[in-house]
Each structure stands twice: as structure tokens, then as C-alpha cells.
Amino acid sequence: MSVDKETVAKIANLARIAVSEDELESTAGELNNILDWVEQLSEVDTDGVEPMTSVVAAALPRRVDEVTDGGYRDQVLKNAPASEHGFFAVPKVIE
């Protein structure tokens, strides 16, 4: 499997990272180097092997249903690049 410029553009878009036209080629090269290298995993026989979901042998803890958090809007908004009237503000979205 090998990624081309188009694939890089597609992934970059999925990841929301602007990659300029002239960077696409070199990025494709870098990604291919890594992907070719990890390709060696195909040598491993994994038939019947369960994929790891957690290295921890424990059950998911569940918390009691109580309101224990929130109610500090100023702190939540404090680091926001833009906020107005208690909202986060972002460039206008057209649906």
C-alpha cells in the first residue's frame, strides 16, 4: 500500500491540517517510508488473536449520577481565543 499526493490531500483534509500543494509530494514520501516499514507486521500470523482493547485487566469504573462539576463558565471560557456573551465564538458556519 502506498499513498499518493491525492491520498495525502484527503487525509490532511480529514485531519484538518492545511498542506500546501508543493508539500504534498514530500509528505507522501515521508508517510510511505513509515508505512513501508510498518508493513512488516503482515508477516505476523494473528489468526485467532484478539486485538488488545486495554492493557489493564480491570472493569470500567462507573460513577454515581450526581452533579459534581460545571457551573464555572468564566473558567471554561478563560482560555478561549474568542468568546462573546458567554458563548465560544467561531467563524460563521453555513449548514
Binding site: 487525509i11 485531519a15 491540517i17 486485538p51 482493547t53
Partner: peptide, 29 residues
């Protein structure tokens, strides 16, 4: 950025099984 792109790729449709799931199986081994 390189790792985000690699990670996005190995999780994307059509590659998930070959890369991510395969890696998690090897991880079990």
C-alpha cells in the same frame, strides 16, 4: 503533523483492519 497524518490514515476506511486492528492483535502477542 506526521504522526497525526499517519494515525488518520491507519484509522481511515479501508485501512483500519490492515493497520490498526492488525497492530492491536500483534500488541496482544
Amino acid at each position: 503533523k506526521r504522526r497525526i497524518l499517519i494515525g488518520t490514515y491507519v484509522l481511515s476506511a479501508g485501512y483500519y483492519d490492515a493497520y490498526y486492528l492488525k497492530a492491536q492483535r500483534v500488541r496482544t502477542l
